[in-house]
């Protein structure tokens, strides 16, 4: 039997085949060697020391981490919500400098709900100055549309200015590169950084909106405004980027405005009919908890927004907002 097999493939033929295979491998190797770019793609930026956003959070107090206030008058509901957490003095100390980061993404009129309501920004500015004795309050964002138009048409620029805040518009030199430890997407990426080097406390204020890509835009998604460069590429992995933003930014306080919720056609909306009155405002030291509560205002469950679970698992906060024993109140 073996003799028969040996006749099918004799030594000469085996060597010939092995030779051909060797030539093929060698050719592939040579081609790979010639095509190999040992330096890789050119570094996209000059080498820089990466920056890290400071931690602006305050120590948590049990059962005083989150408040939910029902009511339509935003000035009243935000006053009450902050008061229930211990008052603005808990978050902002005398002589401190504060940055407020509203959602000013679009050059859109306030009534469409695509941006943070100006009266809400103004009220928080007022609280920082009059109750807490802040030295300086900045209001800033890095909008997608032309920044000056966004601050003007959203009404936020005027409202913030009238309340005594200084509006900071983005400039090229305000951006520095950062890498989030353990991050998959935020790596060697420019962020809107400079204004946050001058401050002691950071407050995020965002409306509750439907979002075509991520399902919902709330306080965590609001930090998307800190990303520079062609940030739209992160829409391909929107849940990861939102979770990473929650890991990257450690605010003092977040305020989630669900007074009027954009139920459909977000994040831009366009019609008043996209909005629904829900009369709810949330203040929280834990933005994952705030957004987990907020998704219910859109008729969604926590599991409908995968970024919430990702952020929870990454330790940025808790989706189990009930465990924080939120303080509930209603104002007329």
């Amino acid at each position: 039997m073996n003799e028969q097999i040996d006749k099918e493939l004799d030594r000469r033929e085996f060597l010939a085949r092995a030779g051909k295979a060797g030539i093929s491998i060698a050719a592939a190797g040579i081609a790979s060697y010639l095509l190999y770019d040992s330096t890789g793609p050119a570094a996209s930026i000059e080498a820089q020391d990466p920056v890290t956003l400071p931690d602006f959070s305050v120590p948590q107090i049990p059962a005083q981490t989150m408040s939910v206030v029902k009511g339509y008058d935003r000035a009243k509901t935000v006053d009450k919500a902050i008061e229930l957490l211990g008052g603005i003095e808990r978050f902002v100390k005398l002589g401190e400098t504060v940055a407020i980061k509203p959602n000013v993404a679009f050059a859109s009129p306030p009534m469409l709900g695509a941006t943070t309501r100006p009266e809400l920004v103004a009220e928080v500015v007022r609280l920082c100055y009059s109750r807490a004795g802040a030295k300086q309050v900045y209001v800033t964002d890095n909008p997608i549309n032309d920044p000056a138009s966004c601050f003007a048409l959203s009404g936020i620029g005027k409202a913030a200015g009238q309340a005594g805040a200084k509006v900071i518009l983005p400039k090229d030199n305000f951006f520095k590169y950062t890498t989030l430890t353990g991050g998959k997407l935020i790596r060697n990426w420019p962020i809107f950084y400079e204004p946050f080097t001058k401050i002691d406390k950071l407050i995020g204020i965002a409306p509750v909106k439907h979002h075509h890509r991520s399902g919902a835009s709330m306080t965590m998604k609001n930090w998307y405004g800190l990303l520079g460069g062609r940030r739209n590429i992160f829409h391909q992995d929107i849940n990861t980027i939102i979770a990473e933003l929650a890991m990257m930014v450690k605010p003092t306080l977040v305020i989630l405005d669900g007074t009027q919720v954009m139920m459909t056609n977000g994040p831009t909306g366009g019609s008043i009919s996209d909005l629904r009155r829900v009369d709810t405002l949330i203040a929280s030291c834990d933005m994952v908890a705030a957004d987990s509560y907020g998704c219910g205002l859109l008729g969604l469950k926590v599991t409908d927004l995968p970024y919430l679970t990702k952020a929870h698992e990454a330790g940025a906060g808790t989706t189990d907002f009930q465990s924080l024993k939120p303080i509930l109140a209603t104002v007329s």
Partner: peptide, 20 residues
């Protein structure tokens, strides 16, 4: 280990949002 800033997109030439 994909790093978008290094591969696939050149951040240096990528414009910051210009608005209109």
């Amino acid at each position: 280990d994909f790093e978008m800033a290094r591969f696939g997109i050149n951040v240096a030439t990528a414009e910051l949002p210009l608005g209109e």
